[in-house]
Design a protein around this nucleic acid. Structure first.
Lengths: 235, 235
DNA sequence: GTTTGTTAGATTGTATCCAATCTACATTAT
DNA sequence: ATAATGTAGATTGGATACAATCTAACAAAC
């Protein structure tokens, strides 16, 4: 009998880069950076020519982005970068406030030493970037990486995917806030306290701090949306 | 200065049926019905030939389905129908338990007379179908329509979309349970009590009942998964 | 007998081309 | 002048064709 059992599931299968995913990354970056502001029409032909590919991968990338909530596709009329109004922001942040504290409690219960160290490393990386004055895109990426590091040990990949999508949708609108010095220092305090509770394995405190942290981010984004009703483009 | 012209969209824009969306519907139906069991490889060419279309809309439909969690696409190796294990089920139902009770509270606060009547109508339609012995697909559709009718007045379309996706992913595995007479009568009791609280505008009671209702569905699905480790195909 | 290299077939990824639909402008009738 | 209508250009949706990659079977070497 075959004792040389073929591995039933490698489980670390590499996700090879394809043109479609590369285009999706490029478009996502442009939308989040504000290069394509809300309401902007994305012309398939233009994107294809600019990136030196055909329109097929561009279209498939747009289908992906629509599922992420970044664009809306109207049949025969193309893809438009979706706009976030205050209701949408409340929608997104309320869901995060419900899901993330629950997940972090479970994560703390299940996190091993290695996971704890990952969280500390993610925090250190974030603060280092902050001190070095990294650009908002990098800061946002590292901020979310910290959240992921804290939440991932819960072993809830589907909920995590939902959260990632929600974060990505609101990300554009957090950039304006993330620049403010006041918001930066407050976020840093939040993170320090949160990671401290995490390392101490105080699940209840961590859940409460995370909830408050997200609530503050929500207020920041809403305040920003109120004074900037429509997405201002970044030249 | 534009004062408040944030809403130029008619908001009832029809979503014209395209071949891609038709293919997505067909594949979704087959997966949910168990015609394509978990682990089944979906061959683009075969689907295209069978539906009389080219492979392009099939590919775009698969990208959509991947975002819904129904399939997993491996580069150069095709799309495989995703399987639900017990961890996934817990993942999905825990998120629903967190989100739906919150949303229903908000919905009850904002529901008008017309929305209340919609809920009652959805319940009546569900129970009528149950008495007439409708097939599981129809029952599941009406069950979810009832949930949507109760949740929609909250005005949280993004959260609702998330819930729809979560429901759709677990839907396949609820079919087996939905056939059982015991589960059916219990679900009917749940629905009756829930809609009664909804009509009485008792938000707290409705949230509690909904939470318990989803928890019971979760237990049913988990029990089913335990005795049927892999998705059994429906001939 | 096991393992490694090779090669043919199958399957997916992408480019090119054609058809269907939309948008904008010009024309005409009221 | 205004509104309705028709037509041309632009843009997206879909089909066909080709290239890249994977899978599996087979041969050769240890």
């Amino acid at each position: 009998m075959p004792q040389t059992m073929t591995k039933p599931a490698p489980e670390a299968a590499i996700k090879r880069q394809t043109v479609t995913s590369a285009v999706a990354d490029a478009l996502r970056r442009r939308i989040i950076a504000g290069e394509y502001p809300g309401g902007h029409q994305i012309r398939q032909e233009a994107v294809a020519a600019e990136l030196g590919v055909s329109r097929i991968p561009v279209r498939e990338a747009l289908v992906q982005l629509e599922s992420e909530g970044l664009v809306v596709i109207h049949t025969h009329r193309g893809a438009v970068v979706s706009e976030l109004d205050i209701e949408d922001a409340l929608d997104i942040f309320d869901s995060r406030i419900l899901l993330e504290p629950f997940i972090i409690k479970r994560a703390i219960e299940r996190a091993g030493e290695a996971e704890i160290r990952n969280v500390q490393a993610a925090l250190a990386q974030y603060e280092r970037a902050l001190q070095q004055g990294a650009d908002p895109a990098e800061l946002s990426r590292l901020n979310w990486a910290l959240h992921i590091a804290m939440l991932a040990p819960a072993g809830r990949p589907r909920t995590l995917a939902v959260l990632q999508s929600l974060y990505g949708t609101a990300d554009r609108y957090m950039r304006l806030q993330i620049k403010g010095k006041a918001a930066q220092s407050r976020a840093m305090e939040d993170h320090d306290a949160l990671v401290a509770a995490y390392v101490a394995r105080d699940a209840v405190a961590a859940a409460r701090l995370l909830k408050e942290h997200i609530a503050r981010a929500r207020e920041d984004v809403i305040a920003g949306l109120k004074q900037t009703p429509q997405g201002a483009s970044a030249s």
